[in-house]
Nucleic acid binder design. Structure first.
Lengths: 215, 215
DNA sequence: AAAGTAGCGGAGGAATGCCTCCGTTTGCAA
DNA sequence: TTGCAAACGGAGGCATTCCTCCGCTACTTT
Protein backbone atom coordinates (compact mmCIF):
# COMPACT_ATOMS: atom_id res chain seq x y z
CA UNK A 1 0.00 0.00 0.00
CA UNK A 2 2.61 2.50 1.01
CA UNK A 3 4.80 1.37 -1.85
CA UNK A 4 2.28 2.45 -4.50
CA UNK A 5 2.12 5.94 -3.13
CA UNK A 6 5.85 6.07 -2.94
CA UNK A 7 6.22 5.49 -6.66
CA UNK A 8 3.61 8.16 -7.32
CA UNK A 9 5.37 10.69 -5.23
CA UNK A 10 8.71 10.07 -6.76
CA UNK A 11 7.78 9.90 -10.42
CA UNK A 12 4.35 10.83 -11.60
CA UNK A 13 3.46 14.49 -11.73
CA UNK A 14 -0.30 14.36 -11.93
CA UNK A 15 -1.85 17.76 -12.52
CA UNK A 16 -4.09 19.21 -9.84
CA UNK A 17 -6.84 20.94 -11.79
CA UNK A 18 -9.79 18.64 -12.37
CA UNK A 19 -9.99 18.84 -16.15
CA UNK A 20 -6.25 18.54 -16.56
CA UNK A 21 -6.15 15.51 -14.32
CA UNK A 22 -9.00 13.89 -16.20
CA UNK A 23 -7.25 14.40 -19.51
CA UNK A 24 -4.01 13.12 -18.09
CA UNK A 25 -5.62 9.85 -17.02
CA UNK A 26 -7.50 9.46 -20.28
CA UNK A 27 -4.34 10.04 -22.28
CA UNK A 28 -2.44 7.37 -20.38
CA UNK A 29 -5.19 4.83 -20.96
CA UNK A 30 -5.36 5.71 -24.62
CA UNK A 31 -1.60 5.46 -24.92
CA UNK A 32 -1.51 2.09 -23.22
CA UNK A 33 -4.08 0.75 -25.67
CA UNK A 34 -2.34 2.28 -28.66
CA UNK A 35 1.05 0.92 -27.67
CA UNK A 36 -0.42 -2.50 -27.09
CA UNK A 37 -2.02 -2.49 -30.54
CA UNK A 38 0.56 -0.69 -32.66
CA UNK A 39 3.75 -1.04 -30.67
CA UNK A 40 5.97 1.80 -29.57
CA UNK A 41 5.66 3.53 -32.93
CA UNK A 42 1.99 4.32 -32.44
CA UNK A 43 1.15 7.79 -33.66
CA UNK A 44 0.84 10.48 -31.01
CA UNK A 45 -1.93 12.17 -32.96
CA UNK A 46 -3.80 8.89 -32.92
CA UNK A 47 -3.39 8.67 -29.17
CA UNK A 48 -4.74 12.19 -28.74
CA UNK A 49 -7.65 11.25 -30.99
CA UNK A 50 -8.42 8.13 -28.97
CA UNK A 51 -8.45 10.25 -25.84
CA UNK A 52 -10.76 12.83 -27.48
CA UNK A 53 -8.21 15.48 -26.74
CA UNK A 54 -6.29 17.98 -28.85
CA UNK A 55 -2.75 17.21 -29.83
CA UNK A 56 -1.60 20.28 -27.94
CA UNK A 57 -2.96 18.82 -24.73
CA UNK A 58 -0.99 15.69 -25.23
CA UNK A 59 2.21 17.65 -25.73
CA UNK A 60 1.62 19.80 -22.69
CA UNK A 61 1.34 16.77 -20.44
CA UNK A 62 4.05 14.75 -22.14
CA UNK A 63 6.57 16.99 -23.87
CA UNK A 64 8.49 14.07 -25.33
CA UNK A 65 7.50 10.65 -26.53
CA UNK A 66 9.76 9.18 -23.88
CA UNK A 67 7.79 11.01 -21.19
CA UNK A 68 4.68 9.27 -22.38
CA UNK A 69 6.35 5.86 -22.39
CA UNK A 70 7.58 6.29 -18.88
CA UNK A 71 4.31 7.67 -17.59
CA UNK A 72 2.38 4.74 -19.01
CA UNK A 73 4.83 2.36 -17.45
CA UNK A 74 4.85 4.06 -14.07
CA UNK A 75 1.06 4.20 -14.12
CA UNK A 76 0.93 0.48 -14.71
CA UNK A 77 3.39 -0.18 -11.89
CA UNK A 78 1.38 2.03 -9.54
CA UNK A 79 -1.83 0.23 -10.42
CA UNK A 80 -0.19 -3.15 -9.90
CA UNK A 81 1.16 -2.13 -6.51
CA UNK A 82 -2.18 -0.66 -5.52
CA UNK A 83 -3.87 -3.94 -6.40
CA UNK A 84 -1.67 -5.70 -3.88
CA UNK A 85 -3.02 -3.41 -1.18
CA UNK A 86 -6.60 -3.83 -2.34
CA UNK A 87 -6.29 -7.60 -2.11
CA UNK A 88 -4.96 -7.53 1.44
CA UNK A 89 -8.28 -8.54 2.99
CA UNK A 90 -8.72 -11.59 0.75
CA UNK A 91 -7.72 -15.08 1.89
CA UNK A 92 -3.97 -15.56 1.37
CA UNK A 93 -4.13 -17.75 -1.70
CA UNK A 94 -6.86 -15.71 -3.42
CA UNK A 95 -4.87 -12.56 -2.86
CA UNK A 96 -1.75 -14.04 -4.41
CA UNK A 97 -3.60 -15.55 -7.37
CA UNK A 98 -5.55 -12.36 -7.98
CA UNK A 99 -2.42 -10.30 -7.95
CA UNK A 100 -0.63 -12.60 -10.37
CA UNK A 101 -3.51 -12.42 -12.79
CA UNK A 102 -3.23 -8.63 -12.62
CA UNK A 103 0.51 -9.00 -13.10
CA UNK A 104 -0.17 -10.45 -16.54
CA UNK A 105 -1.50 -7.13 -17.81
CA UNK A 106 1.55 -5.41 -16.42
CA UNK A 107 3.90 -7.67 -18.33
CA UNK A 108 1.92 -7.10 -21.51
CA UNK A 109 2.44 -3.36 -21.19
CA UNK A 110 6.04 -3.85 -20.26
CA UNK A 111 6.63 -6.00 -23.28
CA UNK A 112 5.05 -3.45 -25.63
CA UNK A 113 7.29 -0.75 -24.21
CA UNK A 114 10.36 -2.95 -23.92
CA UNK A 115 12.31 -1.48 -26.82
CA UNK A 116 11.69 2.06 -25.59
CA UNK A 117 12.39 1.68 -21.90
CA UNK A 118 15.90 2.00 -20.58
CA UNK A 119 16.25 -0.96 -18.27
CA UNK A 120 19.22 0.47 -16.44
CA UNK A 121 17.51 3.70 -15.54
CA UNK A 122 16.86 4.85 -12.01
CA UNK A 123 13.15 4.77 -12.78
CA UNK A 124 13.20 1.21 -13.98
CA UNK A 125 15.14 -0.03 -10.98
CA UNK A 126 12.85 1.72 -8.55
CA UNK A 127 9.80 0.24 -10.22
CA UNK A 128 11.21 -3.25 -9.96
CA UNK A 129 11.87 -2.72 -6.27
CA UNK A 130 8.34 -1.48 -5.74
CA UNK A 131 6.80 -4.44 -7.54
CA UNK A 132 8.86 -6.74 -5.40
CA UNK A 133 7.84 -4.92 -2.24
CA UNK A 134 4.18 -5.20 -3.23
CA UNK A 135 4.07 -8.81 -4.36
CA UNK A 136 6.57 -10.64 -2.22
CA UNK A 137 4.53 -10.34 1.00
CA UNK A 138 1.55 -11.90 -0.77
CA UNK A 139 3.60 -14.96 -1.64
CA UNK A 140 5.05 -15.20 1.85
CA UNK A 141 1.62 -14.93 3.41
CA UNK A 142 0.23 -17.69 1.21
CA UNK A 143 3.24 -19.81 2.04
CA UNK A 144 2.83 -19.26 5.77
CA UNK A 145 -0.85 -20.16 5.46
CA UNK A 146 0.19 -23.41 3.82
CA UNK A 147 -1.62 -22.65 0.56
CA UNK A 148 1.47 -22.06 -1.56
CA UNK A 149 4.46 -24.31 -1.73
CA UNK A 150 7.43 -23.01 0.19
CA UNK A 151 10.15 -24.04 -2.24
CA UNK A 152 9.40 -21.25 -4.74
CA UNK A 153 11.02 -17.85 -4.41
CA UNK A 154 9.32 -14.66 -5.50
CA UNK A 155 11.82 -14.37 -8.31
CA UNK A 156 10.92 -17.86 -9.49
CA UNK A 157 7.27 -16.92 -9.61
CA UNK A 158 7.95 -13.71 -11.54
CA UNK A 159 9.93 -15.65 -14.11
CA UNK A 160 7.30 -18.33 -14.32
CA UNK A 161 4.40 -15.98 -15.00
CA UNK A 162 6.50 -13.51 -16.97
CA UNK A 163 7.78 -16.27 -19.21
CA UNK A 164 4.29 -17.47 -20.00
CA UNK A 165 3.29 -14.04 -21.23
CA UNK A 166 6.20 -14.01 -23.63
CA UNK A 167 4.40 -16.63 -25.64
CA UNK A 168 1.90 -15.20 -28.04
CA UNK A 169 -1.53 -16.71 -27.61
CA UNK A 170 -4.06 -16.73 -30.40
CA UNK A 171 -7.15 -17.71 -28.42
CA UNK A 172 -8.43 -14.95 -26.11
CA UNK A 173 -8.87 -16.77 -22.82
CA UNK A 174 -5.95 -19.07 -23.35
CA UNK A 175 -3.39 -16.92 -21.58
CA UNK A 176 -5.49 -16.71 -18.45
CA UNK A 177 -6.08 -20.44 -18.56
CA UNK A 178 -2.39 -21.20 -18.85
CA UNK A 179 -1.60 -18.82 -16.02
CA UNK A 180 -4.21 -20.69 -14.03
CA UNK A 181 -2.37 -23.92 -14.73
CA UNK A 182 0.84 -22.31 -13.65
CA UNK A 183 -0.76 -21.20 -10.41
CA UNK A 184 -1.85 -24.77 -9.83
CA UNK A 185 1.79 -25.66 -9.86
CA UNK A 186 2.33 -23.24 -7.04
CA UNK A 187 -0.03 -25.07 -4.69
CA UNK A 188 1.58 -27.39 -2.19
CA UNK A 189 2.30 -30.65 -3.96
CA UNK A 190 1.49 -34.02 -2.44
CA UNK A 191 4.85 -35.71 -1.78
CA UNK A 192 5.63 -37.62 -4.95
CA UNK A 193 6.63 -41.27 -4.82
CA UNK A 194 10.23 -41.21 -6.04
CA UNK A 195 11.66 -37.84 -5.04
CA UNK A 196 11.19 -34.69 -3.06
CA UNK A 197 11.17 -31.25 -4.56
CA UNK A 198 14.02 -28.83 -5.02
CA UNK A 199 13.89 -25.05 -5.28
CA UNK A 200 12.87 -24.66 -8.88
CA UNK A 201 10.99 -27.85 -9.54
CA UNK A 202 7.61 -26.15 -9.33
CA UNK A 203 8.63 -23.89 -12.15
CA UNK A 204 9.82 -26.89 -14.09
CA UNK A 205 6.73 -28.98 -13.83
CA UNK A 206 4.46 -26.15 -14.81
CA UNK A 207 6.51 -24.83 -17.70
CA UNK A 208 6.70 -28.26 -19.22
CA UNK A 209 2.93 -28.40 -18.98
CA UNK A 210 2.48 -25.11 -20.81
CA UNK A 211 4.76 -26.12 -23.62
CA UNK A 212 2.30 -28.81 -24.53
CA UNK A 213 -0.52 -26.30 -24.71
CA UNK A 214 0.95 -23.75 -27.04
CA UNK A 215 3.94 -21.98 -28.41
CA UNK B 1 19.61 -30.58 -45.50
CA UNK B 2 16.68 -31.47 -47.67
CA UNK B 3 14.45 -29.47 -45.38
CA UNK B 4 16.24 -26.20 -46.06
CA UNK B 5 15.78 -26.60 -49.78
CA UNK B 6 12.19 -27.47 -49.25
CA UNK B 7 11.44 -24.16 -47.58
CA UNK B 8 13.23 -22.38 -50.38
CA UNK B 9 11.23 -24.07 -53.02
CA UNK B 10 7.95 -23.43 -51.36
CA UNK B 11 8.38 -19.82 -50.31
CA UNK B 12 11.31 -17.81 -51.46
CA UNK B 13 11.30 -16.61 -55.03
CA UNK B 14 14.91 -15.72 -55.50
CA UNK B 15 15.57 -14.02 -58.82
CA UNK B 16 17.75 -15.82 -61.34
CA UNK B 17 19.75 -13.02 -62.94
CA UNK B 18 23.06 -12.45 -61.15
CA UNK B 19 22.71 -8.77 -60.33
CA UNK B 20 19.10 -9.14 -59.23
CA UNK B 21 19.99 -12.04 -57.01
CA UNK B 22 22.86 -10.11 -55.47
CA UNK B 23 20.61 -7.18 -54.69
CA UNK B 24 17.98 -9.47 -53.28
CA UNK B 25 20.43 -10.98 -50.82
CA UNK B 26 21.89 -7.63 -49.87
CA UNK B 27 18.44 -6.20 -49.25
CA UNK B 28 17.51 -9.04 -46.95
CA UNK B 29 20.65 -8.61 -44.90
CA UNK B 30 20.13 -4.88 -44.69
CA UNK B 31 16.52 -5.39 -43.67
CA UNK B 32 17.45 -7.87 -40.98
CA UNK B 33 19.91 -5.40 -39.49
CA UNK B 34 17.50 -2.51 -39.73
CA UNK B 35 14.67 -4.44 -38.12
CA UNK B 36 16.97 -5.59 -35.34
CA UNK B 37 18.06 -2.02 -34.66
CA UNK B 38 14.87 -0.05 -35.20
CA UNK B 39 12.14 -2.62 -34.86
CA UNK B 40 9.49 -3.37 -37.43
CA UNK B 41 8.93 0.31 -38.14
CA UNK B 42 12.34 0.74 -39.73
CA UNK B 43 12.17 2.94 -42.81
CA UNK B 44 12.19 1.18 -46.16
CA UNK B 45 14.22 3.98 -47.71
CA UNK B 46 16.79 3.49 -45.00
CA UNK B 47 16.94 -0.21 -45.79
CA UNK B 48 17.49 0.53 -49.48
CA UNK B 49 20.21 2.99 -48.51
CA UNK B 50 21.95 0.43 -46.30
CA UNK B 51 21.89 -2.02 -49.18
CA UNK B 52 23.31 0.62 -51.58
CA UNK B 53 20.33 0.12 -53.82
CA UNK B 54 17.63 2.37 -55.20
CA UNK B 55 14.26 2.45 -53.52
CA UNK B 56 12.69 1.19 -56.73
CA UNK B 57 14.76 -1.95 -56.53
CA UNK B 58 13.51 -2.64 -53.07
CA UNK B 59 9.90 -2.26 -54.15
CA UNK B 60 10.36 -4.50 -57.17
CA UNK B 61 11.63 -7.35 -55.03
CA UNK B 62 9.28 -6.76 -52.13
CA UNK B 63 6.11 -5.02 -53.26
CA UNK B 64 4.73 -4.73 -49.74
CA UNK B 65 6.33 -4.28 -46.36
CA UNK B 66 4.85 -7.60 -45.33
CA UNK B 67 6.66 -9.32 -48.20
CA UNK B 68 9.92 -8.02 -46.80
CA UNK B 69 9.11 -9.21 -43.30
CA UNK B 70 8.28 -12.67 -44.49
CA UNK B 71 11.28 -12.91 -46.76
CA UNK B 72 13.64 -11.93 -43.97
CA UNK B 73 12.05 -14.49 -41.73
CA UNK B 74 12.09 -17.27 -44.32
CA UNK B 75 15.70 -16.46 -45.14
CA UNK B 76 16.61 -16.80 -41.49
CA UNK B 77 14.80 -20.12 -41.23
CA UNK B 78 16.52 -21.40 -44.35
CA UNK B 79 19.91 -20.39 -43.01
CA UNK B 80 19.20 -22.05 -39.70
CA UNK B 81 18.13 -25.28 -41.37
CA UNK B 82 21.14 -25.20 -43.66
CA UNK B 83 23.40 -24.83 -40.63
CA UNK B 84 22.06 -28.10 -39.29
CA UNK B 85 23.22 -29.82 -42.47
CA UNK B 86 26.60 -28.11 -42.41
CA UNK B 87 27.22 -29.33 -38.89
CA UNK B 88 26.43 -32.94 -39.72
CA UNK B 89 30.08 -34.00 -39.83
CA UNK B 90 30.89 -32.53 -36.41
CA UNK B 91 30.88 -34.67 -33.27
CA UNK B 92 27.33 -35.05 -31.98
CA UNK B 93 27.56 -32.64 -29.06
CA UNK B 94 29.48 -29.98 -30.99
CA UNK B 95 26.90 -30.14 -33.74
CA UNK B 96 24.02 -29.64 -31.32
CA UNK B 97 25.73 -26.86 -29.38
CA UNK B 98 26.77 -25.08 -32.57
CA UNK B 99 23.29 -25.24 -33.93
CA UNK B 100 21.76 -23.89 -30.74
CA UNK B 101 24.13 -20.95 -30.76
CA UNK B 102 23.02 -20.26 -34.30
CA UNK B 103 19.45 -20.64 -33.13
CA UNK B 104 19.94 -17.61 -30.89
CA UNK B 105 20.30 -15.32 -33.89
CA UNK B 106 17.17 -16.80 -35.34
CA UNK B 107 15.15 -16.02 -32.23
CA UNK B 108 16.50 -12.46 -32.20
CA UNK B 109 15.18 -11.93 -35.71
CA UNK B 110 11.95 -13.64 -34.85
CA UNK B 111 11.47 -11.43 -31.85
CA UNK B 112 12.07 -8.26 -33.84
CA UNK B 113 9.47 -9.37 -36.38
CA UNK B 114 7.09 -10.81 -33.85
CA UNK B 115 4.48 -8.09 -34.01
CA UNK B 116 4.43 -8.19 -37.79
CA UNK B 117 4.33 -11.93 -38.42
CA UNK B 118 1.05 -13.76 -38.49
CA UNK B 119 1.73 -16.78 -36.34
CA UNK B 120 -1.22 -18.75 -37.63
CA UNK B 121 -0.19 -18.47 -41.24
CA UNK B 122 0.65 -21.38 -43.45
CA UNK B 123 4.14 -19.96 -43.85
CA UNK B 124 4.76 -19.73 -40.14
CA UNK B 125 3.58 -23.27 -39.48
CA UNK B 126 5.72 -24.68 -42.25
CA UNK B 127 8.76 -22.88 -40.94
CA UNK B 128 8.24 -24.30 -37.49
CA UNK B 129 8.00 -27.78 -38.91
CA UNK B 130 11.20 -27.27 -40.88
CA UNK B 131 13.10 -26.01 -37.87
CA UNK B 132 11.95 -29.01 -35.95
CA UNK B 133 12.98 -31.35 -38.75
CA UNK B 134 16.42 -29.76 -38.88
CA UNK B 135 17.20 -29.56 -35.18
CA UNK B 136 15.53 -32.54 -33.62
CA UNK B 137 17.89 -35.10 -35.18
CA UNK B 138 20.86 -33.21 -33.77
CA UNK B 139 19.48 -33.57 -30.29
CA UNK B 140 18.64 -37.24 -30.77
CA UNK B 141 22.11 -37.95 -32.12
CA UNK B 142 23.78 -36.27 -29.15
CA UNK B 143 21.51 -38.20 -26.83
CA UNK B 144 22.31 -41.52 -28.50
CA UNK B 145 26.00 -40.68 -28.24
CA UNK B 146 25.53 -40.15 -24.51
CA UNK B 147 26.66 -36.51 -24.66
CA UNK B 148 23.24 -34.98 -24.01
CA UNK B 149 20.87 -35.99 -21.29
CA UNK B 150 17.98 -38.08 -22.51
CA UNK B 151 15.27 -36.58 -20.36
CA UNK B 152 14.96 -33.39 -22.41
CA UNK B 153 12.63 -33.19 -25.39
CA UNK B 154 13.36 -31.02 -28.40
CA UNK B 155 10.48 -28.81 -27.39
CA UNK B 156 11.98 -28.37 -23.94
CA UNK B 157 15.25 -27.27 -25.46
CA UNK B 158 13.58 -24.78 -27.79
CA UNK B 159 11.73 -23.25 -24.86
CA UNK B 160 14.87 -23.17 -22.77
CA UNK B 161 17.01 -21.37 -25.31
CA UNK B 162 14.14 -19.31 -26.67
CA UNK B 163 13.21 -18.14 -23.21
CA UNK B 164 16.72 -16.98 -22.48
CA UNK B 165 16.74 -14.78 -25.55
CA UNK B 166 13.56 -13.08 -24.37
CA UNK B 167 15.56 -11.52 -21.60
CA UNK B 168 17.18 -8.32 -22.68
CA UNK B 169 20.91 -8.34 -22.02
CA UNK B 170 22.90 -5.17 -21.67
CA UNK B 171 26.41 -6.63 -21.92
CA UNK B 172 27.32 -7.85 -25.43
CA UNK B 173 28.70 -11.34 -24.76
CA UNK B 174 26.37 -12.03 -21.88
CA UNK B 175 23.68 -13.72 -23.93
CA UNK B 176 26.13 -16.19 -25.43
CA UNK B 177 27.56 -16.88 -22.02
CA UNK B 178 24.18 -17.58 -20.52
CA UNK B 179 23.28 -19.83 -23.43
CA UNK B 180 26.52 -21.63 -22.74
CA UNK B 181 25.44 -22.16 -19.18
CA UNK B 182 22.12 -23.46 -20.40
CA UNK B 183 23.88 -25.90 -22.68
CA UNK B 184 25.88 -27.13 -19.72
CA UNK B 185 22.59 -28.07 -18.17
CA UNK B 186 21.89 -30.24 -21.18
CA UNK B 187 24.95 -32.44 -20.58
CA UNK B 188 24.32 -35.72 -18.84
CA UNK B 189 24.16 -35.01 -15.13
CA UNK B 190 26.04 -37.09 -12.56
CA UNK B 191 23.36 -38.93 -10.55
CA UNK B 192 22.49 -36.58 -7.72
CA UNK B 193 22.44 -37.83 -4.15
CA UNK B 194 18.78 -37.53 -3.24
CA UNK B 195 16.78 -37.94 -6.45
CA UNK B 196 16.80 -38.87 -10.08
CA UNK B 197 15.70 -36.57 -12.86
CA UNK B 198 12.30 -36.16 -14.42
CA UNK B 199 11.41 -34.95 -17.89
CA UNK B 200 11.78 -31.21 -17.46
CA UNK B 201 14.19 -30.97 -14.59
CA UNK B 202 17.07 -30.01 -16.85
CA UNK B 203 15.14 -26.97 -17.93
CA UNK B 204 14.37 -26.17 -14.34
CA UNK B 205 17.88 -26.32 -13.00
CA UNK B 206 19.27 -24.19 -15.77
CA UNK B 207 16.56 -21.56 -15.81
CA UNK B 208 16.94 -21.06 -12.11
CA UNK B 209 20.64 -20.52 -12.73
CA UNK B 210 20.00 -17.87 -15.37
CA UNK B 211 17.59 -15.95 -13.21
CA UNK B 212 20.44 -15.26 -10.86
CA UNK B 213 22.50 -13.84 -13.68
CA UNK B 214 20.11 -11.27 -15.07
CA UNK B 215 16.62 -10.10 -15.64
C1' DA C 1 29.18 -8.72 -80.53
C1' DA C 2 24.55 -7.43 -80.91
C1' DA C 3 19.85 -7.50 -79.50
C1' DG C 4 16.45 -7.78 -76.35
C1' DT C 5 14.79 -7.73 -71.99
C1' DA C 6 15.14 -7.96 -67.02
C1' DG C 7 16.57 -5.05 -63.80
C1' DC C 8 18.11 -0.50 -61.89
C1' DG C 9 17.78 4.17 -59.79
C1' DG C 10 15.72 8.04 -58.04
C1' DA C 11 12.67 12.19 -58.87
C1' DG C 12 8.54 13.60 -57.06
C1' DG C 13 3.63 13.70 -55.42
C1' DA C 14 0.63 12.16 -51.78
C1' DA C 15 0.16 11.01 -47.15
C1' DT C 16 1.31 11.00 -42.59
C1' DG C 17 3.66 12.31 -38.41
C1' DC C 18 5.92 15.65 -35.40
C1' DC C 19 5.68 19.68 -32.79
C1' DT C 20 4.87 24.85 -31.99
C1' DC C 21 2.12 28.64 -31.30
C1' DC C 22 -1.66 31.26 -30.04
C1' DG C 23 -6.59 32.52 -29.71
C1' DT C 24 -10.29 30.51 -26.91
C1' DT C 25 -12.32 28.12 -23.02
C1' DT C 26 -12.85 26.76 -18.23
C1' DG C 27 -12.00 25.56 -13.39
C1' DC C 28 -11.26 27.63 -9.02
C1' DA C 29 -10.09 30.94 -5.38
C1' DA C 30 -11.45 35.04 -3.43
C1' DT D 1 -19.87 36.18 -9.18
C1' DT D 2 -16.04 37.47 -11.08
C1' DG D 3 -11.19 37.59 -12.63
C1' DC D 4 -7.44 35.24 -14.21
C1' DA D 5 -4.23 31.69 -14.50
C1' DA D 6 -4.27 27.23 -16.16
C1' DA D 7 -5.60 24.30 -19.60
C1' DC D 8 -7.53 23.37 -24.13
C1' DG D 9 -7.70 22.61 -29.25
C1' DG D 10 -6.12 22.47 -33.68
C1' DA D 11 -4.21 25.06 -37.78
C1' DG D 12 -0.12 24.94 -40.06
C1' DG D 13 4.93 24.43 -41.18
C1' DC D 14 8.52 21.24 -41.45
C1' DA D 15 10.27 16.63 -41.88
C1' DT D 16 9.83 12.00 -43.12
C1' DT D 17 7.97 8.09 -45.30
C1' DC D 18 5.55 5.68 -48.77
C1' DC D 19 5.19 4.22 -53.35
C1' DT D 20 4.81 4.91 -58.55
C1' DC D 21 6.62 5.66 -62.85
C1' DC D 22 9.76 5.75 -66.53
C1' DG D 23 14.19 6.67 -68.86
C1' DC D 24 18.57 4.37 -68.50
C1' DT D 25 21.86 0.37 -67.69
C1' DA D 26 23.83 -4.03 -68.13
C1' DC D 27 23.21 -9.15 -68.00
C1' DT D 28 22.32 -13.10 -70.73
C1' DT D 29 21.60 -15.49 -74.83
C1' DT D 30 22.36 -16.61 -79.41
Amino acid sequence: MRSAEQVSEVFSRRPKRADARRNYETLISAAREAFAEDGVSASLEDIARRAHVGIGTLYRHFPTRQDLFESVYVDEVEALCRTAGDLADQPPWDALAGWLHRFVRYTATKRALAEALNRDSELFRTCRTEVHAAGEPLLRRAQRAGTARTDASFDDVMHLVGGITMIHFAEPGQLERVVGMALNGLRPQPPSSDQESRAASSVASVSSATSVVSR
